[in-house]
Amino acid sequence: MKNTKFEKFWDNIFPKIRPWLFLSPFILFVLVFSVYPVLRSISLAFMQDYNRLTGNYNGIGWGNFEGIFKSRDFKNAILNSSLYAVMVVPIGLVISLFFASLLNKRLKGTAIYQTAFFLPLVTSTVAIGFVWRFMFNGNYGVLNSILSIFGVDKIKWLEDSRYSLTTIVIYGIWSSIPFSTIVLLSAMQSINKKYYIIARMDNASSFQMFKKITLPMMMPTIIILMFLNLISSFKVFDELQVFFGGPGPYSNLYTIVWYIYEQMRTGIYGVGYAAAASIVLFVFVLSATLLLVLIRKVWLNRGKRLVRSKRNA
């Protein structure tokens, strides 16, 4: 028997709030660690001369943005991050595609290779980075030994500022390969094998088969990988610390994330700059993503568009 008014009220209200009770730990987590920081950094980006010690600031405006765009380091960061993305994403994908087609040939021990390919993914950047430091070493590094076969002089990968971008690009390409290869491989394996039988009956060469069947069938996957790799290209940070102990041997290799990190750490007024730079990073990634969404759309609709434009003509 329900007697008190409260008990009746509770019976009514409890089913409604129960789902929220279950969700509350997660919601709290998202609010504290995602929503609040995002809102806070947006507001910080527009607070001019924000003093991290006193919390005072000098009005609302674009001051922080003007500041970072005047900064040589930030311009350097944008340039480096863009160059890095432009090189790492396509080269990494082409190499991954090559490895995926090798693995797809069902050679002996494919399973072992597949595991080997996955290993770097689950090892920390720092541990791998130290191994790469040995390989990049100017005197006894394996990279220079290989290059010396082709008559290339010793390169000081880690000390010579002319090569620092190349160094992290090489590392970036290498580290993007496992994930891309695994994803491409699974896409490749889902292509109906009968396509290749038909193509063989039509006397198509392996290259023709790759061009006419494999590549078009994998295009949606390739575009998605471009998304993901592009986004991670803008987040280069750990390897700078490991290879150079900073943004390049002569502070020549700022990336956007490193710039944000440094502004955050140094100076009383750095917080505003860091926040503004994060927003620039966000806009960068967003526009790159939108561009890819557009490419993807065009790719998926290309046939239909052709017909429509012809009908209109």
């Binding site: 109906n192 009968k194 396509y195 039988i197 038909i198 009956m201 006397n203 006419k212 069947i213 069938m217």
Partner: peptide, 17 residues
């Protein structure tokens, strides 16, 4: 396969996309 010059039609159409 290449030399036999057969035409094959499967249940799935398998046209070059």
């Amino acid at each position: 396969i290449e030399k036999r010059n057969v035409g094959y039609v499967f249940q799935d159409y398998l046209l070059y996309p």
